[in-house]
Design a protein around this nucleic acid. Sequence first.
DNA 1: AATTTATTTAATAGACTTATTAAATAGGGT
DNA 2: ACCCTATTTAATAAGTCTATTAAATAAATT
Lengths: 207, 207
Amino acid sequence: MNKDNNMEQQILQCAEELFLEKGFSLVSTTDIAKKAGCNQALVHYYFRTKENLFQQIFQAKFTKFLYIFTTFDDSDEPFTTRLRKKIEAHFDLLIENRQIPFLIVNELILNEERRSALVKNIYNKNLEIYRRFDHELQEEIQKGNIRPISTLDLLINIVSMNIIIFFMLPLLESQFNFDDEEIAELLQQRKHEVVETIMCSLRPKNK
Amino acid sequence: MNKDNNMEQQILQCAEELFLEKGFSLVSTTDIAKKAGCNQALVHYYFRTKENLFQQIFQAKFTKFLYIFTTFDDSDEPFTTRLRKKIEAHFDLLIENRQIPFLIVNELILNEERRSALVKNIYNKNLEIYRRFDHELQEEIQKGNIRPISTLDLLINIVSMNIIIFFMLPLLESQFNFDDEEIAELLQQRKHEVVETIMCSLRPKNK
DNA sequence: AATTTATTTAATAGACTTATTAAATAGGGT
DNA sequence: ACCCTATTTAATAAGTCTATTAAATAAATT
């Protein structure tokens, strides 16, 4: 049951899957132990508390989720091209981590304590990148290449449209019996449509 | 504690507030009883099970939430004007029921059983309205008044952009200390921006 | 081989859950 | 005053949950 990769790792991984699937309060340490194939006490031996275990997973996931925002490549391609790539990269990251939106809604937004812990962390880390993006965007607006819009609204628009399909996936899978291939196809279409919508919404009005 | 309005109603109302705030599994019948000011057994006397009580509340909320889609006014105003009104009405409904998005994500999307029960119900009820909207939209696209887009994508875009700010509210309230007035102002701005974004995204390309 | 250290388990304390039961209380109607 | 019915409570069964403890096993070190 334990060759070179140890049980600690096994527990962590099983806990991650379960937490992502059901959320914090619907997963018991007994569930985790059962899935990992060990005694329930062992979960506490390695991570002391359930909260501890969760935090560790959540922090990692969340960092990964935000990573995409912390880079805005400064190649010499035009702004809109880079923006388009950014939207696609964000969507692709969500494809690889489909349950992240649930985790965030469930645990970050519903739980005040966890929120406080992370927000400041994030805020400081991403402020600079935000400023640079903001600067570039407003410059493009000045030049008349893009319809006037606040940077925050644009970011919110992108995130919201990218995210929502992942909230709908369980519905599509279980209720309309979409298989993996159909889902994959649907996601690609949706990604394309989001990019299209954003780009169209940014065209200047007089043009 | 019980004049003309009875305790049953009181329990229902308190349960609703608690469920909306914390979700099903984080609220105990003891919590509900405490808030309603009665014995815990009384909750079971009136509603027999916690699940029963929840279903009753959830069904009502969800019906209300969907109601907005079940009408698309057929006045002689132009399509885009009516669409604009629709988006605003949807947003306003969310303002009045801010916690609905949480409830849906938490309980409908995470819970397979509840999902099945509701989906067919909804599907049949709204199919006709969907078809009519679909017909009108595609007609406008044919005429060249609107950029080509699938009806479903458009609806998804609207819902997603309308909803997301309500997921962010707890963050804005607790982390950035927005007061009620600032929140109200922010929501109005956001509503305006969503309408603007959608309308801009629908402009035909060649125009 | 003996001893120390790390890993794992069984058992259980203690708190909290939902739901049920039987008993207490209150308010008409007769 | 008596009875009937609806409302409300206290008590508790039966179960789950997290976390701890002490004991057993395995691995590493000396």
